[in-house]
C-alpha cells in the first residue's frame, strides 16, 4: 500500500497567512443588552482575533443602542472575516470599518499623573501646554493631566513624562467617527 509513504504529521494543514497585518478601527452599533460586551469579546477570543483597544458606551438611549469602537490588528483578509462574523451576531445592527472607508477621525483620552518638584515641575507644565493637556488635579508635588488626541500623540506625551516623574496613566482606548455629513 502506498499510504505508508505519504506521511503527514498533522490533522490540519495550516497555510501561513502571507498578507501583512494592519490595524483597523471598527465601529459597531449594537443593542445595549446584558452580555453584549461578552458576546463581542467572546467572538474575538474564540476566533483568535486580536483586540488592540475597545471602547463602549450607550449612544442612543431611547433605542438602547451602544456604539463600540474596536481597534484590531489583522491581515486584510481577516479584517473582512471579522466584519462578517460581527455582523452575524444577532444584536449587532451595523459594522463599519472606518480604516477601510478611509475617512475615520479618531481620538483617545488619557489621564496622566506626574509627581515631582522644582525644575521638573516647570518642565512638566511647559510640555503639557505644548500638548494642550489640561491640568485637572494639582497638589504641591503632583499633577493630573487630561490629554486628548490621536493615540500616537498620547503615546508621545507619556514618553516625555516618563523621566519627569510619571506615576500612572489611564487611557480610554481609541474612539472614532467618520468625517463628513453622513452618519452610520
Amino acid at each position: 500500500m502506498n499510504a505508508k509513504f505519504q506521511p503527514t504529521g498533522s490533522a490540519y494543514f495550516i497555510v501561513p497567512d502571507t498578507q501583512n497585518p494592519e490595524q483597523h478601527i471598527l465601529s459597531v452599533i449594537v443593542d445595549n443588552e446584558p452580555g453584549i460586551l461578552a458576546r463581542i469579546a467572546g467572538l474575538f477570543s474564540g476566533r483568535g482575533y486580536n483586540i488592540d483597544s475597545l471602547t463602549v458606551s450607550e449612544t442612543e438611549h431611547e433605542k438602547h443602542l451602544s456604539r463600540i469602537t474596536i481597534a484590531v490588528t489583522a491581515t486584510p483578509k481577516m479584517h473582512m472575516q471579522i466584519r462578517m462574523q460581527l455582523d452575524r451576531l444577532v444584536p449587532v445592527h451595523r459594522v463599519l470599518d472606518l480604516t477601510a472607508e478611509g475617512n475615520g477621525l479618531e481620538r483617545e483620552l488619557a489621564l496622566v499623573k506626574v509627581a515631582g518638584k522644582g525644575e521638573n515641575r516647570v518642565e512638566t507644565l511647559r510640555l503639557a501646554e505644548a500638548f494642550r493637556a489640561q491640568v485637572v488635579d494639582a497638589t504641591t508635588d503632583s499633577f493630573v493631566f487630561e490629554i486628548t488626541g490621536k493615540s500616537s500623540k498620547i503615546e508621545q506625551f507619556i514618553t516625555l513624562m516618563q523621566p519627569l516623574g510619571l506615576v500612572e496613566v489611564v487611557r480610554t482606548g481609541r474612539t472614532a467617527i467618520s468625517r463628513g455629513p453622513e452618519g452610520m
Binding site: 499510504a3 505519504q6 503527514t8 498533522s10
Partner: peptide
C-alpha cells in the same frame, strides 16, 4: 479509502 491525507 480513498483518503486524502490531511494537508494534501
Amino acid at each position: 479509502f480513498p483518503m486524502i491525507p490531511s494537508g494534501k
